[in-house]
Write a protein that binds this DNA or RNA. Structure first.
Lengths: 241, 241
DNA sequence: ATTCATTTGTGTCCCCGAGACACCAAACGT
DNA sequence: ACGTTTGGTGTCTCGGGGACACAAATGAAT
């Protein structure tokens, strides 16, 4: 048996009573593609510090609450958003990142399809808005960094996973899917190469229906075929076409 | 101005005084390649709970300490390891992940070249050891999951970054470099393809010296040429040769 | 000194995915 | 019927990825 007397400091180090615990928050960078723009949902701060500034939806983690559950709860309470794709991004913990004092923040990225966006929910129009990622207002704390990280994460994973499909309704046209990619990646893609890759990957299948959007030839409607992400990587996928 | 009386709960939610802060720890999965095996450094727990079990080096974050600084400090104190490559992995926060109560743990991955490994440092032989990742002892908490995540991270990044070079001394032979990749990825690679890719990427350069390891033809010694990670990705790199 | 074992070092061929590129089809409005 | 708009399709070329075999340089053993 190890004798605890050998190194008392080591034995003490792990006693939570000895060190003050820290405030822990979650913050969520939630994206959607709306009106031909990649947007992020921001809320107006009601707290005295930074009052009136915009910030990411988030808040303190409760004592018996999982981190992801906290992120979902804050998202629901502040914006009405539920049932989103959610993925942990990074934990920010620099001692001076929050002017209120030392706060650890676990950041999440979320994706929400445009047809499920609360545009003006619970009459909070003035308290929550979707901003273009290229035209952000003044933000509290280190939230600009979080948004930047979230954007990089989404762009990266767009290339080798199917998260992009989280941002579309259940059925969609190939034109819409391509526009989604172009808006997020901020560059134009070749239509034929894009479709060739889709066929190769067998990511989507026709529903048999068509949709006409006013002018132009009607487009075939597709739906997502659930595919294992791992299979994608193993097939050596590189999705930005 | 927003009237704070409209939604007192929202206004209160962000006051750290209202919610008990949480204990926050850092834990580090530190890898090396030693004796033809991928190994992880574990320490024997001195604390009463889980006494005698092995665990990842880690401990509580101090009130004014950055997360990464905490990870480095715990690593140094528990194992004597300094100056390592360190990268944040994931934050584990399930309410029941630590039997001592609710503890948030920010996990890090570290890489240490074999020639800098403390083998039997500070006479703590019995308190810290390098274990093969395929033959782990019983571990405290959710540390097996952390090691698994760390392993996946290292394998993934081996493919599109140069972190592998963190695990070798300043000069090395191409055989050593290839063996490193084979051990981490746990599969054999083709020598000619491996070298062709290295030349293509201009990752390493000859030092002009040679080394003879006892038997066999002497191998040329190489050194790492610092290269921007981003450039690698842009050049469409896929390193496992 | 010769032989053997061991490790280093090198080039070619084939396949497949990636990117560049242009035209016809189907609907709508006038 | 004509113009406008959007949807839908095939080919060629280039380059990286994987499979593959043999000679060269050394040390050890005899």
């Amino acid at each position: 048996m190890t004798d605890p007397l050998i190194s008392p400091p080591a034995a003490e180090r792990h006693r939570s009573a000895d060190l003050p615990p820290l405030p822990v928050t979650v913050d969520t960078v939630i994206f959607t593609v709306l009106g031909e723009e990649l947007r992020v949902l921001l809320v107006r701060r009601a707290e005295s510090r930074f009052l009136g500034l915009w910030s990411l939806p988030g808040g303190f983690v409760r004592p018996e609450e999982a981190l992801e559950a906290a992120a979902l709860r804050e998202l629901r309470d502040a914006t009405g958003v539920t049932d989103v794709y959610l993925e942990q991004l990074y934990t920010f913990g620099d001692p001076d990142r929050d002017t209120r004092g030392r706060v650890i923040s676990v950041a999440y990225v979320a994706l929400l399809a445009a047809d499920r966006c609360p545009l003006v929910p619970h009459e909070l129009e003035a308290e929550a808005q979707w901003f273009s990622v290229y035209e952000l207002p003044a933000l509290a704390f280190d939230h600009p960094r979080m948004i930047q990280s979230g954007l990089e994460r989404v762009r990266t994973k767009l290339e080798y996973t199917t998260i992009g499909l989280q941002l579309l309704p259940a059925t969609f046209t190939l034109g819409e899917l391509q526009r989604l990619y172009e808006i997020i990646l901020d560059r134009r893609l070749d239509k034929r190469n894009f479709r060739r890759k889709l066929k190769l990957l067998e990511l989507v299948e026709e529903t048999g229906q068509k949709r006409s959007d006013g002018r132009g030839r009607p487009a075939a409607l597709y739906r997502f075929r659930r595919i294992d992400f791992v299979q994608l990587r193993e097939r050596g996928i590189h999705v930005p076409f």
